[in-house]
Amino acid sequence: MSAKKMSSMRRNYTVECVVKYIVFALLLVVMLFPYAFMLNKSFMNIVDINNSGKILFFPKHFTFANYRIFIDYIGYFVNSFIVVVINGLLVPLTSCLVAFPLARYRFKGDNFMFTLILATSMIPSTVLQVPQYLLFVKLKLYDTLASQFIGAFFGGSGMQIFLIIQFMRAIPKELDEAATIDGANKFMIFWRIMMPLCMNVFIYIGVGVAIAKWNDFQGPLIYLKTDAKRTMAVAFYFHFGASGDISLMTHVKMAMAVCMTIFPAILFFICQKQMIGGVKLGAVKE
Protein backbone atom coordinates (compact mmCIF):
# COMPACT_ATOMS: atom_id res chain seq x y z
CA MET A 1 0.00 0.00 0.00
CA SER A 2 1.35 3.40 -0.87
CA ALA A 3 2.11 5.88 1.86
CA LYS A 4 -0.46 8.22 0.40
CA LYS A 5 -3.17 5.63 0.67
CA MET A 6 -2.19 4.78 4.24
CA SER A 7 -2.31 8.38 5.38
CA SER A 8 -5.63 8.94 3.70
CA MET A 9 -6.93 5.83 5.39
CA ARG A 10 -5.69 7.12 8.69
CA ARG A 11 -7.39 10.44 8.06
CA ASN A 12 -10.61 8.66 7.23
CA TYR A 13 -10.30 6.72 10.41
CA THR A 14 -9.77 9.88 12.46
CA VAL A 15 -12.74 11.57 10.84
CA GLU A 16 -14.83 8.52 11.48
CA CYS A 17 -13.79 8.48 15.12
CA VAL A 18 -14.55 12.14 15.64
CA VAL A 19 -17.94 11.87 14.00
CA LYS A 20 -18.73 8.82 16.06
CA TYR A 21 -17.68 10.48 19.30
CA ILE A 22 -19.91 13.46 18.63
CA VAL A 23 -22.89 11.30 17.78
CA PHE A 24 -22.31 9.09 20.79
CA ALA A 25 -21.98 12.07 23.07
CA LEU A 26 -25.30 13.49 21.90
CA LEU A 27 -26.99 10.12 22.21
CA LEU A 28 -25.52 9.53 25.63
CA VAL A 29 -26.78 12.84 26.92
CA VAL A 30 -30.25 11.59 26.21
CA MET A 31 -29.70 7.98 27.27
CA LEU A 32 -27.95 8.82 30.50
CA PHE A 33 -30.40 11.51 31.47
CA PRO A 34 -32.31 9.33 33.95
CA TYR A 35 -29.09 8.09 35.47
CA ALA A 36 -27.73 11.61 35.76
CA PHE A 37 -30.98 12.70 37.36
CA MET A 38 -30.69 9.91 39.88
CA LEU A 39 -27.10 10.87 40.58
CA ASN A 40 -27.99 14.53 41.02
CA LYS A 41 -30.83 13.73 43.35
CA SER A 42 -28.49 11.70 45.50
CA PHE A 43 -26.54 14.86 46.20
CA MET A 44 -29.51 16.99 47.16
CA ASN A 45 -30.85 17.72 50.59
CA ILE A 46 -34.46 17.59 51.69
CA VAL A 47 -35.26 21.15 50.69
CA ASP A 48 -34.20 20.56 47.13
CA ILE A 49 -36.17 17.35 46.99
CA ASN A 50 -39.40 19.02 47.87
CA ASN A 51 -38.85 22.54 46.59
CA SER A 52 -42.56 23.32 46.71
CA GLY A 53 -43.27 21.03 43.84
CA LYS A 54 -40.84 22.48 41.33
CA ILE A 55 -38.50 19.66 40.40
CA LEU A 56 -34.85 20.60 40.40
CA PHE A 57 -32.24 19.03 38.20
CA PHE A 58 -29.12 20.40 39.84
CA PRO A 59 -28.86 20.41 43.60
CA LYS A 60 -28.96 23.79 45.24
CA HIS A 61 -27.45 22.39 48.40
CA PHE A 62 -24.81 19.87 47.44
CA THR A 63 -24.13 17.17 50.01
CA PHE A 64 -22.44 13.77 50.26
CA ALA A 65 -24.20 12.92 53.49
CA ASN A 66 -26.80 10.70 51.87
CA TYR A 67 -24.26 8.07 50.94
CA ARG A 68 -23.78 7.21 54.56
CA ILE A 69 -26.85 5.01 54.21
CA PHE A 70 -24.71 2.34 52.59
CA ILE A 71 -23.15 1.45 55.92
CA ASP A 72 -26.52 0.19 57.12
CA TYR A 73 -26.81 -2.04 54.11
CA ILE A 74 -23.56 -3.97 54.35
CA GLY A 75 -25.21 -6.99 55.94
CA TYR A 76 -27.74 -7.10 53.15
CA PHE A 77 -24.94 -6.73 50.66
CA VAL A 78 -23.41 -9.98 51.87
CA ASN A 79 -26.71 -11.80 51.42
CA SER A 80 -27.18 -10.40 47.95
CA PHE A 81 -23.64 -11.32 47.07
CA ILE A 82 -24.11 -14.96 48.10
CA VAL A 83 -27.33 -15.29 46.15
CA VAL A 84 -25.89 -13.63 43.08
CA VAL A 85 -22.66 -15.63 43.01
CA ILE A 86 -24.38 -18.99 43.40
CA ASN A 87 -26.95 -18.16 40.78
CA GLY A 88 -24.42 -16.61 38.43
CA LEU A 89 -22.27 -19.73 38.46
CA LEU A 90 -24.78 -22.52 38.69
CA VAL A 91 -27.45 -21.32 36.33
CA PRO A 92 -25.21 -21.22 33.24
CA LEU A 93 -23.64 -24.53 34.23
CA THR A 94 -26.88 -26.42 34.56
CA SER A 95 -28.34 -24.66 31.54
CA CYS A 96 -25.42 -25.84 29.43
CA LEU A 97 -25.86 -29.34 30.79
CA VAL A 98 -29.47 -29.38 29.78
CA ALA A 99 -28.93 -27.71 26.43
CA PHE A 100 -26.16 -30.03 25.31
CA PRO A 101 -28.12 -33.13 24.25
CA LEU A 102 -30.86 -31.04 22.69
CA ALA A 103 -28.39 -29.13 20.57
CA ARG A 104 -26.22 -32.00 19.43
CA TYR A 105 -28.19 -35.20 19.30
CA ARG A 106 -31.43 -36.42 17.90
CA PHE A 107 -33.37 -38.77 20.10
CA LYS A 108 -36.86 -39.80 20.89
CA GLY A 109 -38.55 -37.01 22.74
CA ASP A 110 -36.10 -34.27 21.88
CA ASN A 111 -38.72 -32.08 20.25
CA PHE A 112 -41.02 -32.64 23.17
CA MET A 113 -38.37 -31.57 25.68
CA PHE A 114 -37.48 -28.55 23.58
CA THR A 115 -41.09 -27.44 23.43
CA LEU A 116 -41.48 -28.07 27.11
CA ILE A 117 -38.45 -25.98 27.99
CA LEU A 118 -39.68 -23.12 25.85
CA ALA A 119 -43.16 -23.43 27.26
CA THR A 120 -41.97 -22.93 30.81
CA SER A 121 -40.87 -19.41 30.00
CA MET A 122 -44.25 -18.57 28.51
CA ILE A 123 -46.09 -19.00 31.76
CA PRO A 124 -46.97 -15.79 33.58
CA SER A 125 -45.21 -16.02 36.90
CA THR A 126 -48.00 -14.41 38.89
CA VAL A 127 -50.00 -17.51 38.68
CA LEU A 128 -47.32 -19.86 39.88
CA GLN A 129 -46.74 -17.72 42.91
CA VAL A 130 -49.31 -19.16 45.27
CA PRO A 131 -48.76 -22.89 44.67
CA GLN A 132 -45.00 -22.33 44.64
CA TYR A 133 -45.27 -20.55 47.94
CA LEU A 134 -47.07 -23.52 49.43
CA LEU A 135 -44.43 -25.80 47.97
CA PHE A 136 -41.56 -23.82 49.43
CA VAL A 137 -43.14 -23.87 52.84
CA LYS A 138 -43.64 -27.63 52.65
CA LEU A 139 -40.03 -28.06 51.63
CA LYS A 140 -38.97 -25.98 54.63
CA LEU A 141 -37.44 -23.33 52.40
CA TYR A 142 -39.49 -20.52 53.88
CA ASP A 143 -37.44 -17.70 55.36
CA THR A 144 -34.16 -19.18 54.19
CA LEU A 145 -31.65 -17.62 51.87
CA ALA A 146 -31.56 -20.97 50.08
CA SER A 147 -34.99 -20.26 48.63
CA GLN A 148 -33.31 -17.68 46.43
CA PHE A 149 -30.73 -19.95 44.91
CA ILE A 150 -32.31 -23.38 45.02
CA GLY A 151 -33.64 -22.85 41.53
CA ALA A 152 -30.12 -22.45 40.22
CA PHE A 153 -29.42 -26.13 40.65
CA PHE A 154 -32.10 -27.04 38.18
CA GLY A 155 -31.26 -25.12 35.10
CA GLY A 156 -32.09 -21.62 34.15
CA SER A 157 -35.20 -20.35 32.55
CA GLY A 158 -36.34 -21.67 29.24
CA MET A 159 -35.04 -18.69 27.31
CA GLN A 160 -31.51 -19.16 28.55
CA ILE A 161 -31.44 -22.81 27.61
CA PHE A 162 -32.88 -21.84 24.25
CA LEU A 163 -30.09 -19.33 23.72
CA ILE A 164 -27.41 -21.87 24.52
CA ILE A 165 -29.01 -24.33 22.14
CA GLN A 166 -28.85 -21.75 19.39
CA PHE A 167 -25.18 -21.17 20.02
CA MET A 168 -24.27 -24.80 20.42
CA ARG A 169 -25.96 -25.76 17.21
CA ALA A 170 -23.52 -23.70 15.21
CA ILE A 171 -20.46 -25.50 16.50
CA PRO A 172 -19.23 -27.93 13.87
CA LYS A 173 -19.95 -31.59 14.46
CA GLU A 174 -16.53 -32.64 13.23
CA LEU A 175 -15.17 -31.88 16.68
CA ASP A 176 -17.53 -34.38 18.25
CA GLU A 177 -16.76 -36.99 15.69
CA ALA A 178 -13.05 -36.54 16.16
CA ALA A 179 -13.40 -36.89 19.90
CA THR A 180 -15.59 -39.97 19.68
CA ILE A 181 -13.04 -41.63 17.48
CA ASP A 182 -10.50 -40.95 20.18
CA GLY A 183 -12.73 -42.79 22.61
CA ALA A 184 -14.37 -39.93 24.49
CA ASN A 185 -17.81 -40.50 26.01
CA LYS A 186 -20.52 -37.89 25.93
CA PHE A 187 -19.64 -36.27 29.18
CA MET A 188 -16.05 -35.78 28.12
CA ILE A 189 -17.18 -34.25 24.87
CA PHE A 190 -19.31 -31.92 26.89
CA TRP A 191 -16.75 -31.00 29.45
CA ARG A 192 -13.60 -30.77 27.36
CA ILE A 193 -14.90 -29.50 24.06
CA MET A 194 -18.27 -27.84 24.43
CA MET A 195 -17.75 -25.95 27.65
CA PRO A 196 -14.56 -24.12 26.67
CA LEU A 197 -16.18 -23.09 23.42
CA CYS A 198 -19.29 -21.93 25.23
CA MET A 199 -17.38 -19.96 27.83
CA ASN A 200 -18.57 -16.67 26.46
CA VAL A 201 -22.21 -17.59 26.36
CA PHE A 202 -21.67 -18.97 29.85
CA ILE A 203 -20.41 -15.62 31.03
CA TYR A 204 -23.12 -13.79 29.17
CA ILE A 205 -25.86 -15.76 30.86
CA GLY A 206 -24.07 -15.72 34.20
CA VAL A 207 -23.75 -11.95 34.20
CA GLY A 208 -27.32 -11.54 33.02
CA VAL A 209 -28.62 -13.76 35.79
CA ALA A 210 -26.41 -12.06 38.36
CA ILE A 211 -27.73 -8.63 37.45
CA ALA A 212 -31.33 -9.83 37.41
CA LYS A 213 -31.01 -11.47 40.81
CA TRP A 214 -29.25 -8.43 42.21
CA ASN A 215 -32.21 -6.20 41.42
CA ASP A 216 -34.92 -8.75 42.11
CA PHE A 217 -37.11 -7.80 45.03
CA GLN A 218 -40.36 -9.62 44.40
CA GLY A 219 -39.03 -13.12 44.95
CA PRO A 220 -37.23 -12.35 48.19
CA LEU A 221 -40.14 -10.24 49.38
CA ILE A 222 -42.39 -13.25 49.75
CA TYR A 223 -39.85 -15.70 51.05
CA LEU A 224 -37.42 -13.79 53.24
CA LYS A 225 -38.97 -12.62 56.46
CA THR A 226 -36.23 -12.17 59.02
CA ASP A 227 -34.56 -8.84 58.51
CA ALA A 228 -31.04 -10.25 58.75
CA LYS A 229 -31.66 -12.60 55.84
CA ARG A 230 -32.87 -9.98 53.41
CA THR A 231 -31.08 -9.10 50.22
CA MET A 232 -30.29 -5.53 49.31
CA ALA A 233 -33.08 -5.14 46.81
CA VAL A 234 -35.82 -6.22 49.16
CA ALA A 235 -34.35 -4.34 52.12
CA PHE A 236 -34.38 -1.28 49.88
CA TYR A 237 -38.01 -1.89 49.03
CA PHE A 238 -38.95 -2.62 52.61
CA HIS A 239 -37.41 0.56 53.96
CA PHE A 240 -38.16 2.98 51.17
CA GLY A 241 -41.41 1.54 49.99
CA ALA A 242 -43.14 1.91 53.31
CA SER A 243 -44.94 5.10 53.98
CA GLY A 244 -43.62 7.22 56.72
CA ASP A 245 -40.63 9.45 56.90
CA ILE A 246 -38.12 7.25 55.16
CA SER A 247 -40.06 7.05 51.92
CA LEU A 248 -39.98 10.83 51.71
CA MET A 249 -36.22 10.84 51.79
CA THR A 250 -35.95 10.60 48.05
CA HIS A 251 -32.41 11.88 48.13
CA VAL A 252 -31.25 9.09 50.42
CA LYS A 253 -33.21 6.63 48.31
CA MET A 254 -31.38 7.81 45.21
CA ALA A 255 -28.02 7.57 46.93
CA MET A 256 -28.79 3.98 47.84
CA ALA A 257 -29.95 3.30 44.31
CA VAL A 258 -26.71 4.65 42.89
CA CYS A 259 -24.81 2.36 45.25
CA MET A 260 -26.91 -0.54 44.02
CA THR A 261 -25.99 0.08 40.42
CA ILE A 262 -22.26 0.10 41.05
CA PHE A 263 -21.83 -3.64 41.53
CA PRO A 264 -23.61 -4.73 38.30
CA ALA A 265 -21.84 -1.97 36.40
CA ILE A 266 -18.44 -3.22 37.54
CA LEU A 267 -19.41 -6.78 36.75
CA PHE A 268 -20.53 -5.80 33.30
CA PHE A 269 -17.42 -3.77 32.61
CA ILE A 270 -15.10 -6.60 33.60
CA CYS A 271 -16.92 -9.28 31.65
CA GLN A 272 -17.71 -7.14 28.66
CA LYS A 273 -15.03 -8.67 26.50
CA GLN A 274 -16.27 -12.19 27.04
CA MET A 275 -19.86 -11.24 26.75
CA ILE A 276 -19.52 -9.45 23.47
CA GLY A 277 -16.26 -9.75 21.71
CA GLY A 278 -15.36 -13.29 21.17
CA VAL A 279 -18.40 -15.50 21.25
CA LYS A 280 -17.00 -17.39 18.40
CA LEU A 281 -19.10 -19.96 16.68
CA GLY A 282 -17.86 -21.96 13.78
CA ALA A 283 -14.59 -20.10 13.74
CA VAL A 284 -12.74 -22.96 15.29
CA LYS A 285 -11.00 -24.17 12.23
CA GLU A 286 -8.56 -26.56 13.78
Partner: peptide, 16 residues
Protein backbone atom coordinates in the same frame (compact mmCIF):
# COMPACT_ATOMS: atom_id res chain seq x y z
CA UNK B 1 -18.99 3.83 25.74
CA UNK B 2 -20.75 0.49 25.63
CA UNK B 3 -20.94 0.48 29.40
CA UNK B 4 -22.49 3.93 29.39
CA UNK B 5 -25.21 2.82 27.00
CA UNK B 6 -25.87 -0.17 29.21
CA UNK B 7 -26.11 1.86 32.41
CA UNK B 8 -29.82 2.77 32.19
CA UNK B 9 -30.65 -0.95 32.15
CA UNK B 10 -29.09 -1.36 35.57
CA UNK B 11 -31.26 1.15 37.40
CA UNK B 12 -33.55 -0.72 39.80
CA UNK B 13 -37.14 -0.67 38.63
CA UNK B 14 -38.51 0.85 41.82
CA UNK B 15 -36.22 3.79 41.39
CA UNK B 16 -36.81 4.16 37.66
Amino acid sequence: IRLLFYLPVLIPGIVM
